[in-house]
Amino acid sequence: MPDTIRPSRLASRRVRPRGLALAAAALALSACSGEQAVNAPASADAERVANLWTGFLAFSSFVFALVIGLVVAAMRTTYTEPARPLSVQRGWTLVLAGGVVLPLVAVVGLVGSGLWIGGVVARNEPPPDLTVEIAGKRWWWEVIYRGEDGAEIARTANEIVLPVGRAARVLLTSDNVIHSFWVPTLQGKTDMIPGRVNESRLTPRETGLYRGQCAEFCGVQHAYMAFVVEVIEAEAFDAWLADQGRARAIPDDPLLRRGLAVFLEADCGTCHAIRGTPADGGMGPDLTHLAARETLAAGTIPNTKGHLAGWIGDPQQVKPGVLMPATALRPDDQEALLAYLGSLE
């Protein structure tokens, strides 16, 4: 397995989840949750569900304590005492109260809250002013920013940059197997199903990094199919998006030129695109702005020179089963390639 120096930024945001105090009585649970936790919401949508969980937990704890308490109370009578059955009347009161009224209360509360939250989501407010199409691949995420007319503005992979406080419409597709798009801190999951376009929305209200992961089993590397949502200020976002749309010029620097040549000679361009160069493959992630990304291999390893070299040389070592072939390079070719890829800010 790969050595494990990870982007420290990802682990930095640890929030104490709410609602845990109630569960602590049952079993001391681990006290912290990462940036992927359901109960560390960073959007109004996720917060409603986190609150729902708090309510569920309180009500369920009560029902559980009640039932177990009654079972224990039922067992009080010891073998030497005479049996003391409930009277028929009391028995039926118990059954009706516990078996009909209590579940009905739960059902009404649950269906009511479910319909209400569903209604809020369906109102779709504020209206999204940004469209991001995300395609599930094996085993990475293609991210395409689209303008109002549907035209492509920029294309990237495994990292979704969003402006804080604005709503983004997320179109979810797949041209292979079923994946499921899930950023727990921002929104519940929605499947990506071949032949369909599903829709979700992300409305982050705090800047920061949020991790997401594929939630539908999709084959060998389902486990390492993660991504990062980076939420930044709105102005910074506009600049970022404009930059991402920019194609590459053929570099002047001889080392970088050589790097591009190595890239093309090694057939990397068959699968990967670097806009502005002859590399226009569509199988793998678009690498036009590779160096601006936090991670490689769909959130698996940090985007450093060493990791990138290891990834190119032996991807199976990092992510067994990955579809990218290993590429053996002479040391000087490798150096040039890494320098070139490192320049793709």
Partner: peptide
């Protein structure tokens, strides 16, 4: 969603019938 939650009722009835059966039974 409603149907899934409603299944709690027949199961709840059974649980509480069992408790009533067990009550004070040595």
């Amino acid at each position: 969603m409603a149907a899934s939650a409603l299944i709690a009722i027949p199961n709840g009835i059974q649980v509480f019938c069992w408790i009533a059966t067990m009550w004070g039974s040595r």
